[in-house]
């Protein structure tokens, strides 16, 4: 026994050092990722934080700063109230797109994964509903602006169908413009959400449904009592990732309103506000907005991380 152990020990040692020699490559292969992350993400993040504590902008042709001003930029940001208004706009347009998105996606995911329905052509439908997700948002917005313009095809169609007597000015109406932004977000994302939720539903044990059926549950009961509760983690994941995406809302309202957020600032989003400051080279205020958005999205990301991975770690 003792002899055995003695003979094993050196071999184990030899193997271990060989493994360590190989494992060194783990670090080497991580170099590109880490180097790129440091240069293009971490340093910019730190300098964005740093910028937020300085007064640094262009007044006409004079460059003011950079002067250290502490938290003054943050005070200015929250004092003039615009950020609340823009956060409100972003939230409203996100909710207007997200509510129909989650309802439609749940419905479609349930149908696609229901073997009893035996839907034909489901591959075709999935292909079609996912397609808008790949469209260039700026080109899609330019298209919508052209189609919904005062003398554009949609107005013409609505008048020919006698729904309207005269052109409706979509881009002069606050709620029409917001609705268009929300509708485009809905179109671009409901296919993606459907496919994610479908993967979740497919993961639910079929025997649960069979048992429920034996007990006489109808399809609505099976949906509300089995599918929804078991889908909860994925629903929360979809909601938070969509919220993070919503905070980043930019291309669609920017191109649709030509960066003005018109009518009367009602479609100006947080990133459009940031874009405005960056464009006018007000780096102090731009930095402060960036930091606020970073903290907001960072907190939400942690939430996603906790829901999706922490639990799995514990189980493992």
């Amino acid at each position: 026994m003792a002899q055995n152990q003695a003979s094993v020990a050196p071999m184990g040692k030899g193997k271990k050092s060989k493994v360590v020699r190989y494992n060194r490559w783990g670090y080497i292969f991580l170099i590109p990722f880490i180097a790129v992350f440091l240069v293009f993400n971490l340093i910019p993040l730190i300098s964005t934080f740093y910028n937020s504590f300085f007064e640094n902008y262009m007044a006409q042709l004079n460059h003011v700063g950079p002067n250290f001003v502490g938290f003054q930029n943050y005070k200015t940001l929250f004092a003039d109230g615009k950020i609340w208004q823009y956060a409100g706009n972003t939230a409203i347009m996100w909710v207007m797109g997200f509510i129909p998105q989650i309802i439609v996606s749940l419905l479609l995911a349930q149908w696609f994964s229901d073997t009893r329905l035996k839907l034909k052509g489901s591959t075709f439908f999935k292909t079609v509903i996912y397609m808008p997700n790949l469209i260039m948002a700026s080109a899609f917005s330019l298209l919508f602006f052209a189609l919904f313009s005062d003398g554009g095809p949609i107005n013409d169609l609505l008048m020919k169908m006698h729904i309207l007597d005269e052109p409706f000015k979509f881009f002069s109406s606050k709620w029409a413009t917001r609705s268009l932004v929300a509708a485009m977000n809905f179109l671009m994302w409901f296919g993606n959400t459907t496919i994610l939720l479908m993967a979740g539903i497919m993961g639910i044990d079929v025997s649960l449904y069979e048992a429920a059926e034996v007990d006489g549950a109808n399809s609505w009961q099976r949906f509300t009592r089995i599918t929804l509760p078991l889908l909860k983690p994925i629903l929360i994941y979809v909601m938070i990732t969509s919220l993070i995406g919503g905070i980043q809302m930019f291309d669609v309202p920017q191109i649709l309103t030509n960066g003005t957020g018109n009518p009367t600032d009602s479609t100006m989003t947080l990133i459009m506000y940031l874009n405005k400051h960056l464009y006018s080279k007000n780096y102090g205020m731009g930095g402060a907005i960036s930091v606020v958005l970073f903290l907001l999205t960072g907190a939400l990301s942690l939430l996603v991380y906790n829901i999706m991975y922490r639990k799995k770690d514990k189980e493992a």
Binding site: N23, R24, I43, F294
Partner: peptide, 28 residues
Amino acid sequence: YDFKLKKFIFTFILMIMMVPTQVTVLGF
């Protein structure tokens, strides 16, 4: 590979997965 910082790096990458690039664009 198996190395000391593996778990830390993996967790770190998962955590930064959702942070949008827009928030660092100024420094960038």
